[in-house]
Computed example of a mutant assay.
Amino acid sequence: MLNISAKLSVTILFLLSLLTLLSTFVLLDPRSANTRQAVQASSVLTTFNLSLMLDDPSNFRSAFGQNVIFMLETSKTGVLKLRQVCALEAAASLNPHINFILAFSDLLEIKAKDNPALQELLQHSPNVKLATLDSSMAVRGTPVQDPKENKLKKDNYYIKEHTSNFLRMSLLWKLGGMYMDLDYMTLKNLSAIIELKNFLTADADYNINNSLLGFERHNPFLFKILETVRSDYDPKDHPTVVRSFNKAVMNVFKISIVEAIRLVNINNQLHVLNYFITSPIKYSECHEVYRTSNASVWFEYIREHGSYTIHLWNSCSRKEGKLDPKSNDSPYVIWARGYCPRAIARAVDWF
């Protein structure tokens, strides 16, 4: 009887030891719930919900300061292309005291595995913040709420571009700051431009663009632009919003666009920057940025005009295709080597 009890006790102790050992393996097993949660936490990039701060400008300013530059990604892919990362790297590195907020519209999270270059940039650029943004919340209460919600359909060919147009105006109306597209190469510190507070930029002698602009919160002229967009919006017209910008300038100030650009400062209410300051290479010439001929001529031209940024024109970038980051000596690749070295270093074969 004693032998049987002793054997039973040994068996029970053995089973308890085995269960303890198995639970240890489960805790360490990559398939366990605890490990899965840790992996999931590191598989997405850190973001904040910008939508929740749209009606609380004082809280936004206390978090990010007075000088903020917004950028937008509205494709809903959750992926930032290498050339876009290059643009962000150049801008952030030359402006370490300015917070750059890159907002992804209508997404809940940004996956790290899809954005290795962006993940590396975040590690080296503490002034770059990622945000998610509900586009409906962003335009709510603004004049562009109606065209965004009722005229811009999901099957619209220009939905990405027009959504971006609506969002940049709404962000500046509600929070104030500066907006810049992701197809700009920054060459200088932008403090002198952002300190203008209320400004538009030209991309030719006769045209104002909306790819780089800045306004104080609730600026009355920006509201006029928003109203003009609402009344004139055509979902089938790609530059419909740009047309409204130009029309608003002419209607409010009773001058031509050529005269507005010439004046620079209109009635101490609005600055209009000449194209050579932020967009020295016009769209008609943009293909030359991606080709090797006459690179030295363009470098001298940029230097002489003291340009702060270069508009690289997304449509032109797509047409010119991929470039060899090692052997190509086009102006764009040379600029990238100097201003976004981390991004271009990730381009193994093509950039």
Rank of each mutant, 00 (worst) to 15 (best):
M1D: 04
A6Q: 08
V10R: 13
V10E: 10
I12Y: 11
L13V: 13
L15Q: 04
L19C: 10
L19T: 12
R36T: 09
Q40C: 11
S42E: 05
V44T: 10
V44G: 02
L45I: 09
S51C: 05
L52F: 14
D56T: 10
S58P: 11
S62V: 14
A63P: 06
G65D: 00
G65A: 11
N67H: 12
K76Q: 10
T77D: 03
T77N: 13
G78M: 06
V79Y: 02
K81I: 09
R83T: 11
V85E: 03
V85H: 04
A87T: 14
A90D: 03
A92D: 04
F100C: 01
L102A: 00
S105L: 06
S105Y: 02
D106I: 06
D106A: 04
L108G: 10
E109I: 15
K113F: 08
K113A: 15
N115I: 10
P116H: 09
Q119H: 15
Q119S: 13
E120M: 09
L121K: 01
Q123G: 06
H124I: 13
N127C: 04
K129Q: 12
D134F: 04
D134V: 01
R140H: 15
R140K: 15
P143A: 01
Q145P: 05
D146C: 08
P147D: 02
K148P: 06
E149A: 06
N150E: 03
N150M: 03
K151N: 09
L152Y: 02
L152I: 09
D155E: 13
N156K: 07
H162E: 02
L171M: 08
L175F: 03
G177T: 09
G177Y: 06
G177S: 06
D181Y: 03
Y184P: 12
L187G: 05
K188T: 11
N189M: 08
L190V: 12
A192M: 12
A192Y: 13
L196V: 02
L196A: 00
L196E: 05
L200Y: 00
T201Q: 03
N210R: 02
L212M: 13
L213V: 08
G214A: 04
E216I: 14
H218S: 07
N219A: 01
P220R: 00
F221S: 05
F221I: 15
F223M: 01
I225P: 04
E227W: 09
V229E: 02
D232E: 08
D234S: 09
P235K: 10
P235L: 07
P239T: 08
S244W: 00
S244R: 06
M250I: 11
F253P: 03
S256F: 05
S256W: 11
A260D: 00
N265Y: 11
N267W: 07
H271Q: 11
Y275W: 09
F276P: 10
I277K: 07
T278H: 00
P280D: 02
P280N: 01
K282T: 13
K282R: 14
Y283I: 15
E285S: 14
C286P: 13
C286I: 02
V289P: 05
S296D: 12
F299I: 05
R303P: 12
H305V: 14
G306T: 13
W313F: 10
S317Y: 08
K326H: 14
D329T: 12
Y332E: 03
V333E: 01
V333Y: 04
I334W: 08
W335T: 07
W335M: 11
G338E: 10
G338W: 12
P341W: 05
V348F: 11
